[in-house]
Design a protein around this nucleic acid. Structure first.
Lengths: 148, 148
DNA sequence: GATGCGGTCTGTAGCCACTACAGAAGCAAG
DNA sequence: CTTGCTTCTGTAGTGGCTACAGACCGCATC
């Protein structure tokens, strides 16, 4: 196992190990054009350089932060054209933050509803369950049974 | 527009209006066997009965509570076989609650990270952005840049 | 009974962001 | 030269829908 601290190029597996991005996913990123087509060895295997490693890290970190591929594409385009401003990037981040907060809010409501349902349940072994009764509540005339 | 309070059967559009489930989705539920094949009119249009309306409401409510189709299938199978116990249902609910709480936890971490990044950003119009710097942080030797 | 119009039909393909193969070929060590 | 791991391309599948196309149904009106 060689060292790769100062390599001419990284094979795809090394990229995967270093970034934690699945090999198939790296190729997928190339297909959808957020990773560039790398050099190839004589035999046709991909060889990445350090910039590409950094780019992949960027994508991975952004994905972990929940940015969509399209948001990442937008960020990368700004970077690539070198004509972004910090304000633009901030805006994209704040927008994403808002959507994360929305998701949290929604999940909290779910949590509450589930807790409420579970609390009413005796957990007994009789086939008579308030949870199912709640779920079966007819939502006639399009009144939602749950707060949305 | 007729009343449908006491109908022989509901056409699919009426089911959709009453439950808030998209028509295409209702047909999809039939295809994946969580809704039964309903009666048909002479001409071949679907006609649902009241039980089926209740079942669809059940599915809709459960989906809104974040249950996966497979979890719903499990619930419905218990109901259909009439051999469930309240304890089983409770267990399924608690399991789902745990996964909702996991998701909330994860999103909170994201939220914090995003807030931290955004706070360091001057929002200026210079192309020199601490957010991008954070995202570009190389994650060499598979140390994750973010807590997982 | 013809017409019109909205509802419904089937079947297929697309969405997101991957993931999972199959079957062939590259590459490095011994 | 062989062995055994890595990588290659291409295609199909995942979940949970959604979006068509192009045809047919059903009901009201004239």
């Amino acid at each position: 196992m060689s060292d790769f601290t100062n390599p001419r190029g990284y094979p795809i597996g090394e990229m995967s190990k270093r970034t934690g991005v699945n090999i198939e996913t790296i190729r997928y990123y190339e297909r959808i054009n957020i990773m560039p087509k790398p050099d190839r060895t004589a035999g046709g295997n991909r060889q990445y350089n350090h910039d590409q490693l950094k780019r992949l890290s960027f994508i991975k970190t952004s994905r972990e932060l929940g940015f969509s591929i399209d948001e990442i594409r937008a960020l990368l385009e700004m970077v690539d054209r070198e004509d972004f401003t910090c304000g633009e990037v901030h805006g994209l981040t704040i927008g994403h933050l808002a959507s994360v907060r929305e998701k949290i809010k929604g999940l909290r409501k779910l949590e509450k509803a589930l807790v409420g349902m579970a609390a009413e349940c005796s957990q007994g072994n009789v086939p008579d369950c308030p949870i199912l009764e709640t779920l079966f509540q007819a939502r006639t005339r399009s009144k939602p049974a749950l707060p949305t």
